[in-house]
Structures are given as structure tokens and as C-alpha cells.
Amino acid sequence: MEAGINTYLDALRLISPNLTDFELSQFAARLTVRELKKKELFLQAGKVQKTIGFIATGLVRSFFIDNNGNEITVGFYAEGDYATHYPAFLSRQPSRYSIQCLEPTTFVCFSFEDQQWIYQQSPNYEKYGRLIAEEILKRQQGRIESFIFQTAEERYLDFIKNRPGLFNRISLSHLCSFLGIERQTLTRIRQKLAHQ
């Protein structure tokens, strides 16, 4: 448990080096650690997300179920990322997404109330929160634009280039769902690239 919290505090220091030891210890006292097994849900669609989870170890995916009953993967989050449907977390509304562990995962968690409390205590935390929110926004915008401006092959190449450590940790079916392509399309893309 302690190791997970230390991992999180190190990540905080990297982004906000101005945080004092006192500020960090204030926040650390409010953190909880949650360990989930592979396939367990951190967040279930239709529920209000009570805590944000910083991923100390492990890997999760965010997905929704479409009108035909298919699971559509919208994101993969590994060590150093946050497991959250952030707009729903901030608005205290039920999430449209589920977050499922693809590996045994350790989360360092804090509640909405804890987040608001620490923002009031320290402008350094407010800055950290803004930077994280900006990163989430950039990723979401990048994902939307990938479907507008890129071909399936370009999305695949982008994934391999920008998330190389994830490729061997996720199933091909989850990858296909994330890329918005059928399995046979992915096979064709990989065969084509292998012969270039």
C-alpha cells in the first residue's frame, strides 16, 4: 500500500515540483489504496464515480456497450495514468463508461471532496489539477480527430508508435475495438506492413 502511495506522490512531484513536503503529506493522509484483480471493474457504467484512481501498477481499459450489445473500447490506461471518466466525476453524474482491469491493478484513490479540499489548501494542487485536466482534454481531442483525419492503418501505426509498451499487454479484440476496425482488417494492415 505504501509503495503505491509513494509512486503517486513521486508522480505529483514530477508535474508540480513546487509542492512542499507538508502539502504532500496533507494529501497523502486522505489517499486510499485499492487493489483489483484482472477483469474486475473499477467503475461501472450507470454509477457515479466516487473516486479517481491513479494507477500505481497494472492496466485498465475504458469501454461502453453499444446498442447492439458490443463492447467498444475507448481507452487504455497504464501505470502513471488516471482511471476516470473525468467529466462525469466532476459533474457527479452517472458515467456512461465502465473501467475494467486488464491486469491485477493497484489504484491510489481520492474522492471528489478530497480533490476540492486540497485545491482550497494549495494553489500548487490547483495547478496540478489543471495540468492533468489539460492532458485528459488533449487525449480526448486526439482520439476524436484520429477518427476524423486518419485511416485505420494510420490509427494503428500511431498506437504502436505512441503506446509501444501496451501492444503485448492487450488483446487483439480490445485493440480492434479501440481502433474501430474488424479483426480481419487489422490482420490485413499487419500483413501489409510486414511486407514493406
Rank of each mutant, 00 (worst) to 15 (best):
S171M: 09
Y125R: 01
Q93L: 02
V74I: 01
V108W: 13
E182N: 05
Q93N: 05
P123G: 07
G46D: 06
R130A: 08
T106V: 05
G180R: 08
P164Y: 12
F159M: 04
F178R: 12
E126V: 07
L90I: 11
G142H: 13
A194V: 00
K138W: 06
I148K: 11
D114C: 09
E182G: 04
E103W: 08
N70Y: 03
L14A: 07
T151Q: 07
C176N: 11
R34V: 15
L19P: 07
I5Q: 06
K38C: 14
E79Q: 09
F76A: 00
T84G: 06
H85F: 13
H195G: 03
Q93A: 01
K47C: 07
L41V: 04
K39N: 15
G80C: 06
F42C: 08
S146F: 11
I5F: 03
G53N: 06
K161L: 08
V33G: 11
L175H: 10
V108A: 15
I15A: 09
Q140D: 05
L102Y: 11
A152S: 14
R183N: 03
D158N: 15
A133G: 14
F112A: 09
N6I: 03
Y97P: 00
K192A: 04
L31D: 12
F89I: 01
S98G: 03
E154P: 08
P164D: 14
K50T: 09
Q184K: 14
V74H: 00
G142V: 07
I144T: 15
F89Y: 05
G4F: 02
D158T: 15
L193D: 00
I118R: 06
K50P: 06
N68R: 06
L24N: 13
L9Q: 08
E2T: 12
V33L: 12
Q140W: 09
G165R: 15
Q191P: 01
E40H: 13
D66H: 00
Y119T: 08
I52V: 12
A78W: 05
Q93D: 02
N124V: 03
K37G: 15
C176I: 08
A78E: 10
L131D: 14
G75K: 00
Q196P: 03
Y128N: 04
C176M: 10
T57V: 02
A45S: 12
C101V: 03
Q26R: 15
Y97K: 01
Q120Y: 07
I144V: 15
G180Q: 09
A133K: 07
R13D: 05
S25K: 04
S95D: 01
A78R: 09
F110I: 00
E134F: 06
F112V: 03
W117M: 10
K161Q: 13
S111V: 01
Y128I: 03
H85P: 05
I189R: 05
A78I: 01
A194W: 02
L14P: 00
I65H: 06
N18S: 13
I144P: 11
